[in-house]
Design a binder for these strands. Structure first.
Lengths: 215, 215, 215, 215
DNA sequence: TATGAATGAGACTTCATTCAT
DNA sequence: AATGAATGAAGTCTCATTCAT
């Protein structure tokens, strides 16, 4: 017998999360006070605590934005018949678009705060890892399918390549939030080249000579 | 005027920075209190404020670790006669080694905190940018020299490739501090392949077809 | 005018008081929140405020439990013909029984909270005083009747003895709620002895020699 | 290398405890805010937390006032040669004097608050119990010595009598803080009579007939 | 130079009470 | 009569910084 509907609850929750996202993106998690979130949300202190148990809960909810991940991943269908390399390109384009979407700027900035937070908040860390595992898994799968169809060099290590691509996008995200010049065409072009190059590379991914560097 | 020698001053300063590095790497900038730094340094509150004007000063000093950058870059000589591609590989190896050096773990973690801090602290941001500009510039120069010697595809965009490599290492650094499995051989192998592939790629870095994605 | 019967009103009120008694006995008046009482009562916040104007009203209602006093006092009839000393013993036994009745534990604990509350809440204080005045009066009367029948030393001060007995039971109540070992036989035996001894004592209750201690 | 002497530390601590005692005796533990204590002590918020870790620490320090116990107990020497019954009377007088000492009013009121607090704060409870164990033990010893010298009925249960005396004083304390008329001569006289009566009583402390009341 | 006690603004959170439904 | 979401003042405690010694 709730007094308000689930839709209303969700609306309030989003009201708070929107306010928090704005504050966090401007001032970071720890420079933002609950009073800032309260003021920006237009609610009262008490109301905010009706929807979130603590400031940390709000941080976690935003540091780990599952919604975003899914939105990007959904760009690539799960149609097994599709050309895996074409699908991989689609994925790259979807990420690149999100990376440069002005409406996603706040989210990008909060993501970077979340990366830092993940170093000392286990729940945030788990969420962040989970958030990068999804695309990594998808990329790995696409490469494996490409290998099985003879479209990708069979000596390649799909997981290593997936991690490389993920790392690449994390790095680009950083440069973006720091207002470094970041030309989406150049990104996409470079990554496309990389993909092409890695797909056809003859050299094994883990050559014997470099073993010495391992620790 | 100073009653203690410059050497003593430097020793004290490093004592403080060491303590702060330890604290920051464990708890982040804003979860660390001055009291933590004071206690860990073995000095007094007053003493710390004799060497740094504020906590922000200490954060800046550590978020921007020029020392580290120089150490890595010095791995690659400035000998213009040297094979630029070999030099590039050396640089990659030096970074990869730093990335997996256990003694550098604290610094890596503080770096990530600094990336987040750079979003709202202009001086930190400037320092961070400066820190990635140095290697980017060096990489760009090496690729340009390679192009001028006919060792690298002349259609490639050296700056874009340099940014890509920098982004890649930032991403790997993140995965490292999150304790993700990170095999240095695989990294180096993959990057080597990438370098080789990009050097010989026929496709232009910024093809006409992808223009549409630009915003 | 009321839309529900008086019986229903009383039932609701008791529902609230039962819940409050449970909460107060566990956590004290000020560590218990209205939310605790609301939850335990199974009612809503609004409903509780329909029956009590404020939390203080609930505290007062429980800190001053007239019901309990009457129940104990009723153990001793008002039959003027009865042997007053036997009646006094009955009263002592009734109190002692209540003191060790497991079902009264909550009430005992809340009583102690009430004693403390009486220090700063005039209405609670009045109720508490009233609650101890009733048995004190009854004891005084019994002793006076005993004196008039020649069963009790006529030099004794009935009021002083009554206050002494009341004090004694308050002290035993404290020891009980603190889970100190409290043997009911020993209590009753000791009090019986005291009563006997005081009834027959030759020494005046207020000897001249001790005047000096008075302030 | 403390900056201030232990004496200065103690002075500050007492400054805080005095302020807290005043506040607590007027408004109780939970109606008193830290701000009240801070204001009354003349110190700053931070200074108070330099000397006590939390409000609960201050409550504990005052709810359990060992100093007072010792002061009262010291009224009775430990001279084994002394007449134990005279010593017991001295103890009674010392307590009675404390009970009516105007300067001890605050302490008495806070004691009652402590009794209530002991119900839900284990550390306070332990302290309160300890505080009543000391005099109980002393009384028990005195009675045992009296028994061994033939000055006290050997059938008496020294522990039961000690507990009875302690309970009695707790009850008188309550009546005092509630501003009930409390004549010290009457108290002392009554207790004296009780002691005399119990010392010479023929009836055993735990008669068979009352067994039935035991639970 | 160096100390560390002291400051006080501001942090997060709770909770008795109200009122639109 | 009854609900429970909402309020916002007030609660406890922290912490970067200062300054008398």
């Amino acid at each position: 017998m709730p007094k308000i509907s689930q839709a209303q609850r969700d609306a309030r929750q989003n009201q708070i999360l929107d306010a928090a996202l704005a504050c966090f993106s401007e001032n970071g998690f720890h420079q933002t006070g609950m009073a800032d979130i309260v003021k920006r949300s237009g609610l009262s202190h008490g109301a905010v605590y009706l929807y979130f148990q603590s400031k940390d809960d709000i941080i976690e909810a935003l540091a780990v934005d599952r919604h975003r991940q899914e939105a990007i991943l959904s760009a690539v269908g799960t149609d097994q018949a599709e050309d895996p390399i074409a699908a991989l390109r689609k994925l790259v384009h979807a990420y690149a678009r999100w990376l440069t979407d002005p409406d996603a700027e706040r989210t990008r900035r909060v993501s970077v705060n979340g990366w830092s937070e993940a170093l000392r908040n286990e729940r945030v860390r788990a969420g962040v890892i989970e958030g990068i595992d999804a695309p990594r898994q998808m990329i790995t799968n696409l490469i494996e399918r490409a290998q099985s169809r003879g479209l990708w060099n069979r000596d390649a290590n799909p997981d290593a390549i997936a991690r490389t691509l993920v790392a690449l996008f994390q790095g680009f995200l950083l440069q973006k939030v720091w207002n470094e010049p970041l030309d989406i065409d150049v990104i996409v072009g470079t990554v496309d080249q990389m993909v092409t190059a890695l797909a056809t590379a003859k050299t094994p991914t883990k050559p014997r000579k470099q073993r010495a560097l391992e620790r």
